[in-house]
Nucleic acid binder design. Sequence first.
DNA 1: AAGTCAACGATTTTCGAAAATCCTTCGGAT
DNA 2: ATCCGAAGGATTTTCGAAAATCGTTGACTT
Lengths: 224, 224
Amino acid sequence: MTQNRDGAGTRAGDAYDAIRQAIRTGHFGPGERLRFSSLQALCGMSVTPVREALTRLTAEGFTVLDDHRGYSVARLSLAELRDITATRQLCEGEALRLAVMKGDADWEARVVAAHHLLARIPQGREGMPSVMREDWEARHGAFHAALISACGSPTLLEICGKLSLQADRYRRMSVSVSGAARDVLGEHRELLERALARDTDGAAEALREHYGRTAAMLANFFEP
Amino acid sequence: MTQNRDGAGTRAGDAYDAIRQAIRTGHFGPGERLRFSSLQALCGMSVTPVREALTRLTAEGFTVLDDHRGYSVARLSLAELRDITATRQLCEGEALRLAVMKGDADWEARVVAAHHLLARIPQGREGMPSVMREDWEARHGAFHAALISACGSPTLLEICGKLSLQADRYRRMSVSVSGAARDVLGEHRELLERALARDTDGAAEALREHYGRTAAMLANFFEP
DNA sequence: AAGTCAACGATTTTCGAAAATCCTTCGGAT
DNA sequence: ATCCGAAGGATTTTCGAAAATCGTTGACTT
């Protein structure tokens, strides 16, 4: 007697999703220690799949392992935010360059569709119901993923994906930061237009500036 | 009663090392299925730490998991070799640029020392005792790691490290490939000289060519 | 009073077996 | 003959408890 549906995944996979979500939403804060007893209660399963989930999360940088001393949520720092941003500008910038060069009509369609979905929700920042905001985050990620989806390099895409997950932790801080005077909507439209116009270097440059602005805004959190 | 020394690591860590080495050396070939029974026999421990090791190895791309169907060694392909090489040229090229710009005297010393150790073993290719060859591989990796060690970006260094591990699997095929007419020693010296001369772009370009040549040589394996 | 070390409690890590899942084989129906 | 489906074996996945490890407390020495 179990609750596993048909050919679905494993319990370890469910634990991975649950714990990652708990970290994303702040249920476990940066630096907080993760005891197995708590996690077993949260996930409703034995220690083995929880442990496997933590191993995966650690490989992706969400958690940190101290041998025989247990796991804890990875801390956030201004230095790391800057580092991740710079690396993203490098990797995702190049990925976009390649995608704009190689992308076919299907890629254009994916990008247009993803942008349309994103644009229907005007702003992803403050004063928004959390359900709607969650939706915005998902569509925002989908738009950026669509942009580089035609780059032709699985390795580069995987790197960009992992960096995006890391950056997401920082982006989530912005729920309470004053939105400043920033036209995120416009930046996305510019990205879309340059990509469709096959302005290879222009699109890559716009993307780098886009990430640079986001990082600059988030940086206010670390020097009070 | 256990064989764990002092404050040493965990069994899972030992299993990780053992299995990774077994894959590196070809004891388990590409695509080969990895049954827990075999791995438990190899590592001399229970299923739990072996499973954790496989989870880590999968996160790094050495193995592949098919839910409820078990793990197997990741396959090699020409397409992936090219993809990894291109991504390496991008990431490690930029890392070297940064390191050459920012590196201090300590960095120079590390690079010179690592190059000296590498140069004492003339060639890492064919007709070499495997123990010596293993040593060459280690020093080769250390030299490349030293070159970029001053780039100032932990994220980028981690990416380069993982890519290097992946590329290592391909490089190991070259034990049986005819060494062609290639001056690896000279390429390394050129890399060293340009780095020390602070020829930022020149060093990065030399590194990209270095990896490009290696990949071109290894490509002979996939089209018979 | 400060320092050392053994014993204890809390927690991680590992084990051996049970449960779940997948693949194959074999019997029967169309 | 072919296709469908159930039983069996092999293997992965998970469980619950035992073993190992770390941090701390408190007695004892200098």
